[in-house]
Write a protein that binds this DNA or RNA. Structure first.
Length: 622
DNA sequence: GCATGATCC
DNA sequence: CAAGCCGATCATGCA
């Protein structure tokens, strides 16, 4: 979410005197500026708001830049003592509306999804989004953590030195002010200047993207159009059955009390079970349990893995595990989700982030809807609270084994391609290959192990990781890996080559040439270097999957817009799954059409397949 | 603000 | 030789 509160500038004298920034306080001035904006091929836009939640934030002012160093700020809502009279926001917005909604007028901004939300609250649908420098800079380098406006200014506009004051101001940290309390003169380095810097950054950053035709395609054909799709998903939100969650909350509270009582009885000690520190003392000092694993800081670990093992010999760990499981469920989902329901819409509005991951995946926060429990039974009940409005149902469509399929495609391994081509159970096929046994003879245990190998491969397999996963010796794990690579030599060569490429050029690429830099690939620290090697293998696979589902989202959204309209809405994306709210009259049609579109999002050497199901809630749709 | 440990793909 | 498999977000306790 965009930060809207800013620290008070301490060095106002650092505003460059030659910057032609203007504060608009008179109607005639605005009219003149609108004409100037219209005369430009592209202009930048930056909104100032009073809240970080896009569903609640109001405009404090809005700024535009038409050329480098020529920018203006229209304040509406600065209400400090003796503030000058400002233009009426309704009047201003009515004047700006035609310009903002005109798709032929090109705009550039920073995180325009946020501006889309803010303007939508005032009945304006921003169109003509041509560029977004937050996204552009992420396309250039997704590994860089510093893609806020100030850092970008430091990186790309350094020689102009006008960013330095900005940097100083923005890092002054601690003291946060309400923007509407800042005087108009003081706002200039934040409002008009930001619009100016956005435009300047755009000129620099887009030039770099244009040099690379494939990066440009990802940027123009996937990421920029996706802004609007994500905006719509966020704005639509998802309906939550909070009565159901409250019921669970009550039940869980009771069970937690029982557990607490039992735990205290065994340990003969009242302590905070949520405190890992206190728990360490109880388990490994009072109770004298053996230390199975240590944390990075050298203290005895109390992780699930450890407690599971201890549970084989003692009754207490099992109670702790259940306690942990329930508190997590309670605080993170059952109590959190109802709090996040928007009063006006009655729905939950997450934030999807387009630039938070290195591989190109989306992430979700406030709340995170991409880690809602599914694996255990109790957790699944939370999904039951994700429901559809009257006369609608929840439809979930997900890619099956998309990452393994991508690995087959990218590597070109004949054996693996063949298995997918023939529609085999891929884990059984893998087991049969490794063990040189007929597929019909493969046991559940053998399939399970092959599955772990297949997943391990995607992560950049290691004997250590596989051994831990399967609870076997490292030697044994290495034997499996060796046999796998013998049978699937194309995979072996592909991965060897990726490591080489990563080392040589410092980055790897997805199928569509999205770039992922790996600065640690030459690290002297072997652990980090090995981790970078695993990323070199995982990133193209995970990143290609991310590219594909993004393409699918665009295809599906286009179909919804032109054919399905209000009967279908895209609600959520969970990496390889899309979740929809579908009118009951067109369930089958929508299901089939969406599957077809998703499966057509990329042409691989093997088919892309999806699974789809609908029901009253997200759990039923699985 | 860091450490730990939980959830998901 | 030890430690970690990819990528995320969030809650809690504690210095």
């Amino acid at each position: 979410m965009k930060k809207t509160n800013l620290s008070l500038p301490s060095h106002l004298e650092t505003i460059n005197k030659d910057d032609k920034y203007k504060i608009i306080l008179a109607e005639q001035e605005l009219i003149q500026w609108i004409e100037k904006l219209k005369a430009k091929k592209i202009f930048s836009i930056y909104t100032k708001t009073n809240h970080s939640n896009y569903m609640l934030a109001n405009l404090i002012g809005i700024s535009f830049a038409i050329e480098e160093k020529i920018a203006m700020y229209i304040p509406f809502a600065h209400d400090y003592q003796d503030a000058p009279k400002q233009l009426n926001y309704k009047w201003v917005l009515s004047k700006l509306k035609p310009l903002l909604e005109d798709p032929t007028r090109s705009k550039v901004g920073y995180n325009l999804k946020y501006d889309l939300h803010i303007l939508a609250r005032y009945g304006i649908q921003l169109r003509g989004i041509q560029h977004d420098i937050m996204i552009a800079s992420h396309i250039l380098n997704s590994t860089s953590r510093k893609n806020d406006i100030v850092s970008l200014a430091v990186d790309f506009l350094e020689h102009q030195c006008q960013c330095i004051s900005l940097e100083k101001i923005a890092r002054k940290g601690k003291q946060q002010f309400k923007f509407n309390q800042i005087t108009l003169e003081e706002t200039l380095p934040y409002s008009a200047k930001y619009a100016d810097i956005i435009l300047q950054l755009h000129n620099k950053i887009f030039k770099k993207i244009e040099h690379d035709s494939e990066l440009k395609l990802i940027y123009k054909n996937i990421e920029i159009p996706l802004i609007f799709i994500l905006f719509k998903m966020e704005r639509t939100g998802v309906l939550i059955d909070d009565a159901l969650l409250n019921l669970h909350s009550y039940k869980i509270s009771n069970r937690l009390q029982e557990l607490e009582f039992k735990i205290y009885k065994i340990t003969n000690n009242r302590f905070n079970i949520n405190s890992t520190k206190q728990l360490q003392t109880i388990l490994f000092e009072s109770m004298n349990f053996p230390i199975i694993k240590k944390t990075p800081s050298g203290k005895p670990s109390t992780s699930e893995e450890v407690l599971q093992e201890l549970a084989l010999y003692y009754p207490l760990p099992k109670l702790i595990l259940e306690y942990r499981n329930l508190t997590k469920l309670k605080s993170n989902y059952i109590e959190k989700l109802p709090k996040m329901i928007n009063m006006n819409t009655g729905r939950i509005h997450t934030s999807y982030h387009q630039v938070m991951t290195t591989t190109g995946r989306l992430s979700s926060s406030d709340p995170n809807l991409q880690n809602i429990p599914i694996r255990n039974k109790l957790g699944r009940r939370i999904r039951k609270a994700f429901i559809a409005k009257d006369n609608y149902k929840i439809l979930s469509v997900d890619y099956s084994q998309i990452e393994l399929r991508i690995m087959a495609h990218l590597s070109g391994d004949k054996n693996l391609l063949n298995a997918f081509q023939q529609g085999k159970d891929i884990h059984i096929a893998t087991a049969a290959e490794i063990l040189s046994v007929n597929a019909k003879k493969i046991s559940n245990e053998q399939r399970y192990r092959a599955k772990a190998i297949n997943f391990g491969l995607i992560y950049g397999i290691s004997a250590f990781g596989l051994a831990k996963q399967l609870n076997i010796s490292q030697y044994e794990a290495q034997q499996y890996i060796n046999r796998y690579f013998k049978r699937y030599s194309g995979i072996f060569l592909y991965m060897e080559n990726l490591r080489k490429i990563a080392y040589k050029q410092g980055f790897v690429e997805t199928l569509f040439k999205r770039r992922i830099y790996l600065p640690e690939i030459k690290s002297k620290n072997k652990i980090r270097q090995k981790a970078a090697e695993r990323s070199a293998i995982n990133a193209p696979i995970q990143g290609t999957a991310a590219d594909i589902i993004k393409k699918a989202m665009l295809l599906v959204s286009e179909w919804i817009e032109f054919k399905a309209n209000d009967n279908v809405e895209l609600l959520m994306q969970v990496h390889d799954e899309l979740v929809f709210e579908v009118h009951k009259s067109i369930l089958e049609t929508a299901k089939n059409k969406i599957q077809k579109l998703m499966e057509s999002a990329a042409k691989l050497n093997i088919p892309l397949l999806t699974k789809a199901k609908y029901g009253d809630d997200w759990d039923q749709a699985h």
